[in-house]
Simulated scan of single mutants.
Amino acid sequence: MTRYDFIANIYDTLLYPLEKSTMNDFRKNFVPKIEGYTLDLAVGTGHNIEYYPPNSHVVLIDKSIEMLKIAKEKSKKRNDLNLEFVHSSVEDLSFDDNTFDTILSIDVFCSVKNPYESMKNVKRVLKHDGKGIFVEHGLTGQLLKDIVLYLTNILTYPTVGSSMIRKPLEYIQYAGFNLLEYGHLKNSFYYFIVRKE
């Protein structure tokens, strides 16, 4: 079992303030951009599901079985989707090369072990000319803000496994994606739209 299995039943309550103030707006903006056969990484309790476009075909993965159970329950509110739930981590994707048209990642790489190699693995399962949508947080390059992130990380990383001091742009560049769009969203969150050539 993972640490997320133990907190699955209270996860939505714990994260409610962040969802309401920040994440929900990100999901509304970026989740509808998925196209074709889509892989949604580390879906947790399934907050993205309500924003999938009608008739979407999505594989939802998470390393927490208990989180996936909650996501499955939420999916029952949508009868216009083709959804597959797979118990898998981002670090150990078992899909064939060049499988997915789109890969969606929202607030994921803060908690992925070995994010550089994991991003290469994500690229592997994306089709040539496929699209990646990443909404991630990390260091800002601004001294005072980053000091706060380092201090916050002392609490978040040991307790919930979320690092506040990651560098998602570096992972994307390391994997060799073609960066189409990149921008700041809010606080230490950024978005990246990429293509696999």
Rank of each mutant, 00 (worst) to 15 (best):
residue 86 V to F: 09
residue 58 V to C: 03
residue 103 I to A: 05
residue 15 L to C: 10
residue 195 R to M: 12
residue 168 P to W: 04
residue 167 K to V: 04
residue 129 D to W: 10
residue 136 E to P: 05
residue 62 D to R: 00
residue 41 L to H: 11
residue 195 R to Q: 14
residue 47 H to V: 02
residue 41 L to P: 04
residue 43 V to N: 01
residue 128 H to N: 14
residue 105 S to C: 07
residue 113 K to Y: 07
residue 133 I to R: 02
residue 134 F to W: 04
residue 22 T to Y: 11
residue 52 Y to L: 01
residue 49 I to C: 00
residue 171 Y to H: 03
residue 127 K to T: 06
residue 36 G to H: 00
residue 168 P to A: 10
residue 144 L to F: 14
residue 183 G to L: 04
residue 8 A to E: 04
residue 82 N to S: 11
residue 114 N to M: 14
residue 1 M to N: 12
residue 133 I to L: 12
residue 77 K to N: 07
residue 18 L to G: 01
residue 7 I to Y: 05
residue 184 H to C: 05
residue 165 I to P: 01
residue 68 L to F: 15
residue 14 L to H: 01
residue 76 K to M: 14
residue 55 N to V: 01
residue 28 K to S: 15
residue 92 D to L: 12
residue 55 N to C: 03
residue 174 Y to G: 05
residue 108 V to N: 04
residue 51 Y to N: 09
residue 174 Y to C: 08
residue 152 T to D: 10
residue 15 L to S: 13
residue 66 E to G: 05
residue 174 Y to R: 08
residue 149 L to H: 00
residue 20 K to V: 12
residue 136 E to Y: 06
residue 176 G to M: 06
residue 176 G to Q: 07
residue 13 T to D: 08
residue 190 Y to V: 06
residue 80 D to K: 08
residue 145 K to R: 15
residue 25 D to M: 08
residue 126 L to M: 13
residue 147 I to M: 14
residue 25 D to N: 08
residue 171 Y to Q: 01
residue 130 G to E: 01
residue 37 Y to R: 13
residue 128 H to Y: 12
residue 140 T to M: 03
residue 162 S to D: 08
residue 67 M to N: 05
residue 96 D to M: 13
residue 164 M to K: 02
residue 150 Y to Q: 11
residue 141 G to F: 10
residue 133 I to S: 00
residue 117 E to Q: 12
residue 1 M to A: 12
residue 75 S to P: 06
residue 13 T to V: 12
residue 29 N to Q: 15
residue 124 R to I: 07
residue 75 S to V: 07
residue 103 I to R: 03
residue 177 F to L: 03
residue 96 D to F: 11
residue 186 K to N: 10
residue 181 E to A: 11
residue 24 N to C: 13
residue 36 G to R: 02
residue 149 L to R: 00
residue 81 L to F: 10
residue 197 E to Y: 11
residue 9 N to S: 12
residue 180 L to G: 02
residue 99 T to S: 09
residue 92 D to N: 15
residue 119 M to R: 07
